[in-house]
Amino acid sequence: MSLKRKDLTGIASLSPDEIMLILETADSFKEVTGREIKKVPALRGKTVVNFFFEPSTRTRTSFELAAKRLSADVINFSPSSSSVVKGETLLDTARNIEAMQADIIVLRHPAAGAAETLARGVKSSVINAGDGWHEHPTQALLDLYTLREKGLAFKGLRVAIVGDIAHSRVARSNIFALTKLGAEIRAVGPPTMIPACLDKLGVRVYHRMDEALRGVDVIMMLRLQLERQGRALFPTIREYARLYGLTAERLKLAEPGALVMHPGPINRGVEIAPEVADSFSSVILDQVTNGVAVRMGVLYLLSGAN
């Protein structure tokens, strides 16, 4: 089987088979990233453009490294250094990039649906690297890859996602991906951070952390977006940390050996206690390592001739 699509704009439209194909493909690239010479010639002569409208170090670096390890040429484009500030529209800028024979455009944009719009407007493949509060598909894929690598099966897997679900594209993509593969998801957070009708996606909603963590196999912590503090989603950081921070004590409520994940960057002492972030349960750095392999897999699968 092969991935018969031009773009990866979200998890919502992927079938379980397509998700598994991406994970299996990433396996091969994990082997490549473990070699002394971490480079294969698969994308020689192709051009990948990182088109980032939001600050990002981790995701952009991860895509850049992935493309370079596949021997593609990489260009980084960010709004402050481009004509976007001069009033050009997203699509016009992208068409200019395309006119320079870019094969794959990796887009991060603050507006939900930006990747989909771009994908319809250009012939190049488009990979969504985060669009507003909508989706961040490669993050969900690397989370899944990490769980699978740790030997967990998705069917019946109990996963708690803790934090600002409403404003998290990572949570949304993970909910789509994990429910498609048969996992059982619990969303935990204060009511201001839980979107309406979340149960329609097959998710159980909790407001008390201790209740939600009981017996789970995986705890996915979300970053508390401190920049949103002015929006009255929670009274104080200290209160949030007390109610929804993952401490060593709370971790004991989960299944023995439960895994702790975080998409980064972490706020130590806020959503996650330092001793948990650095514990054996934490797979946070595995997630980062696997991110490169998974993105190599996605770039490879989308790089077929047009």
Binding site: L3, E31, A42, K46, Y300, G304
Partner: peptide, 22 residues
């Protein structure tokens, strides 16, 4: 697995399935 080193990779519409090198 030699797939990533094939000389016709750029010409194919659908990318062949990878199997792991070990």
């Amino acid at each position: 697995d030699i797939t990533l080193y094939r000389d016709d990779l750029a010409l194919r519409k659908d990318q062949p399935v990878l199997r792991k090198t070990s």
